[in-house]
Nucleic acid binder design. Sequence first.
DNA 1: GTCTATACCTTGATAGAC
DNA 2: GTCTATCAAGGTATAGAC
Lengths: 196, 196
Amino acid sequence: MTRHAVDRSADLKARIRDAAEDQFSSRGYAATSIRDIAAAAGVDPSIVIRHFGSKEALFVDTVRLRARDAGILSGPISQVGERLVRQVLAQPDDLVRSRGAFAALLRASDSDDVQALLRQELKASIIDAVEARLPPPDAKLRAHLFCAQLIGLFTALWVIEDVELTAANRDALAVSYGALLQQALTGDIFSTSAAG
Amino acid sequence: MTRHAVDRSADLKARIRDAAEDQFSSRGYAATSIRDIAAAAGVDPSIVIRHFGSKEALFVDTVRLRARDAGILSGPISQVGERLVRQVLAQPDDLVRSRGAFAALLRASDSDDVQALLRQELKASIIDAVEARLPPPDAKLRAHLFCAQLIGLFTALWVIEDVELTAANRDALAVSYGALLQQALTGDIFSTSAAG
DNA sequence: GTCTATACCTTGATAGAC
DNA sequence: GTCTATCAAGGTATAGAC
């Protein structure tokens, strides 16, 4: 393989990858065909399979939550809940990318590989970051509870598209769901009398 | 159309419906083919389309959450949270059916019709029941917050299959996530200082 | 050996025969 | 009213071109 061939091949893979991530994240897995991706990348459909093996492998290779770098969990731990909901509702660019990726990953999670990828992305983006900031002995469980609540918010807003929630007063939603998230992090939730 | 023809036709549709609900709920939308359903119902594939119009229409016609009748939100309002999580973790028969249906609906929700059905099922099963039991003026918002949290629990357990959550101590999970759900119903979550 | 084009198989959906 | 034949679309493998 010559130097030029390497460059060309790498460039080709990059072009396919970009087209794939873009289409998978915007239209979802089922609605995106190999032929669509190939056309957007300006190559023959068989090239895509040749380089990535299968549609599913290409999906797993390209789609990511991308929330890791967003510093979405930064700031004082006691205010993470509300701040996070505000960030989600404000829809900055990086989160908009994550939005499509999350919906695509969740809807394609009947594949074991996609399901594993989604778990891994949530762990790397959310769970590990939260766990690292909480004291023992409940750090891990709290991180998973927090993540489950966040999955609920993302799924309600981005996958099921609950209009009542989208249309709700932004401040009220940020304050209330933020308080619920905050409870998972630092609230008194392990004594049976704490609820209510 | 004779009397017998009506019975036969109705019986046929019922057989197809049963087979469809069973396969869609257990294997999901994508992995279930019209030919599979037809074979299970003992009819020709074209009959299925003839009677229901399309695979998607058949899906929307058959798959339901079925949690409505479960009385899942019964009992004292102050203890609904923990009791509900315990019921979910205990996996009674009716909830096991709902589990597959929830995953199938969520994963097929890139279709507008399926998405609308899922919204409607959540409203009928959860949101309306919760809203009816809470006092104004926050009943509606609280119901939607509660539902979002519940979606998070279902999705984490049944769709993403978070093993850490599944393997967690059942009592600890019921108490803690129950407390979080309870906060959405009856907690002080609308003042900015309530969190933490 | 590496890339490309053609062909194949599954599956959803339709039209016409009986 | 039910079945057979067929089409169209899409994922994938294979054989041929350089």
